[in-house]
Design a protein around this nucleic acid. Structure first.
Length: 114
DNA sequence: ACAGTGACCTACT
DNA sequence: GAGTAGGCCACTG
């Protein structure tokens, strides 16, 4: 039932929803979200959407979204390069060299979970 | 309306 | 195994 504010449901909002659904201590990838949204290979748009997440009202756990290698690619966009890794460690995710440890084990696939 | 950009991914060489 | 190139869709100027 899409009866809630279907007026401004942009691609961005869709990403916010999925990203916001990421369980704490878990991480996902841009490609996974892109595929779940049906964008296919447009993983770039996902990252870009998260970029606007800072403008979005409310907090979006964009730090839980990494690239295919589990690397914190957009850490520089958090304002401080340490904010992303710090947030992840704060949630129980160990980060080393801008990379998530046991990333494969912590990988949360929306298309598989949802 | 056109062109450029963007936190990527996949495939080929 | 590693590196390079192209593709993709959506937003901004």
């Amino acid at each position: 039932m899409e009866n809630e504010k279907s007026d401004e449901k942009n691609f961005f909002t869709r990403v916010y929803e999925v990203t916001s659904l990421i369980p704490q201590g878990r991480v996902t990838t841009y490609g996974a979200i892109a595929r779940y949204l049906g964008s296919g290979n447009s993983a770039r748009m996902v990252g870009w959407a998260l970029n606007s997440s800072f403008s979005h009202s409310g907090f979006v756990p964009a730090h839980r979204v990494l690239n295919r290698n589990g690397m914190l690619t957009g850490k520089h966009h958090f304002g401080t390069p340490s904010a992303m890794s710090q947030l992840l460690e704060n949630e129980g995710v160990k980060v080393e060299n801008d990379r998530v440890v046991n990333f494969k084990n912590r990988f949360w696939d929306p298309a598989s979970e949802l």
